[in-house]
Each structure stands twice: as structure tokens, then as C-alpha cells.
């Protein structure tokens, strides 16, 4: 707790100095907090997933060239200079990590959860992905291929999870409610 207070004080000191010097817009922090707390988040990715499930042409476009497919949304929030969407199927399961830092597609998933940035996930998911997935409750059959995507450059990855069974009657709006952040990182499946 003392450590956290110390960090907050130090951040506040830097903020005040940068504002005094005219290097930081006085409203910049509140703008950023509002942007990421209220406007950017996994609901965007969930909307893309639900649309892909219900519009085959959009799904194909998303998998072939996600940048072009989502250009019209003009998502703000950064970190999707190049977005690649990878599809989970009964035969292939995809999971995303950044072992070197914590790269993550902010504009479509929001800011990453704590576990994504912690050493346990970053160190282990490339080495023993099946074991790590089990810790998220995701048990994969031995014949399901696992592909780990280590985001080592500026390409950002979004997993297109499998559509849960029994959702044939739902529209895209209802389906989006079912899509979780973790399923789009690839550590869980939807059911």
C-alpha cells in the first residue's frame, strides 16, 4: 500500500511539473481516463465478433484484412496500427500474449487485465499453453492444435471465438453480450 501511495505521489508530481511547463494539457489526464473508462473497451471487439458470426461476408473480410474491414468504425484508443483476427475452430485454438512487454489491441479490447501483464502469464503461455489454458478452466482435447501469438512487433491480434451452441435465434446485439474479453484473448471458450 505504501508503495502504491509513493507511486501515486510521484505521478502527481510529474503531472504538476509537466502542466506548469506547458508540456501537458491540464485536461489531458481526465480526457484519457474518460476515454478508456467509458468509451474504449471489449464491447467493441464483442460487437465485431457478433457481427462476424451473423454476417459471413463480414467474417471473411475480417479474417482476410481486419484493418479494411473495421476502417469504417474509426475506433480511437490506439494500438491497432495493424489488426489481425484469428479464428478459433473445433481443430485450432488461438491464444495471444506479449512476452516482451504487454502489447494488446487497446482500441478493440480496451486496456489489458492485470494477469495479461503479469510475469506468470507472459513467461508460461508460450512454453506450456495447454497448462496455462487449464488454469483459466479451458480444457482442450489433445488433437486440438494450439497456436500462441506472441505480439512482438506492432501487429495486434484479436481472437474470433467459436459461436456457442444454441444461440441460433439470437441477433448480433444479444450475441455481443455473450462475448467476453478473455475469449477474445483466447484464454477461454464461450459456451
Amino acid at each position: 500500500m505504501g508503495e502504491v501511495n509513493h507511486q501515486a505521489l510521484r505521478a502527481q508530481a510529474l503531472e504538476e511539473l509537466l502542466v506548469e511547463k506547458g508540456l501537458l494539457d491540464p485536461g489531458a489526464v481526465d480526457n484519457i481516463v474518460t476515454l478508456y473508462n467509458e468509451r474504449v473497451g471489449p464491447m467493441r471487439g464483442a460487437g465485431l465478433v457478433a457481427r462476424a458470426w451473423t454476417e459471413p461476408e463480414f467474417k471473411q473480410a475480417l479474417l482476410e484484412d481486419a484493418d479494411a474491414a473495421i476502417a469504417d468504425y474509426e475506433y480511437e484508443g490506439g494500438e491497432i496500427q495493424k489488426l489481425v483476427v484469428v479464428e478459433n475452430t473445433p481443430d485450432v485454438h488461438n491464444v495471444v500474449v506479449c512476452t516482451l512487454c504487454s502489447c494488446y489491441p487497446w482500441a478493440v479490447l480496451g486496456l489489458p487485465p492485470k494477469w495479461y501483464k503479469d510475469p506468470a502469464y507472459r513467461s508460461r503461455v508460450v512454453r506450456e499453453p495447454r497448462a496455462v489454458l487449464k488454469e483459466f478452466g479451458t480444457e482442450l482435447a489433445d488433437d486440438v492444435e494450439v497456436r500462441v501469438w506472441d505480439s512482438s512487433a506492432e501487429v495486434r491480434y484479436l481472437v474470433l471465438p467459436e459461436r456457442p451452441q444454441g444461440t441460433e435465434d439470437l441477433d448480433a446485439g444479444d450475441l455481443a453480450e455473450l462475448v467476453t474479453r478473455d475469449s477474445m484473448i483466447g484464454v477461454t471458450r464461450l459456451r
Binding site: A8, Y36, L111
Partner: peptide, 16 residues
Amino acid sequence: DPVGFLERWHGAVFAM
């Protein structure tokens, strides 16, 4: 985790 910054100083560091 909830969406967004858990503490204001996280957002301050991000913005700076």
C-alpha cells in the same frame, strides 16, 4: 478487472 484504469495515477502516467 473492470474496464479502464483502476486508479487515477495509472491514467496520469498513461497520459503523460
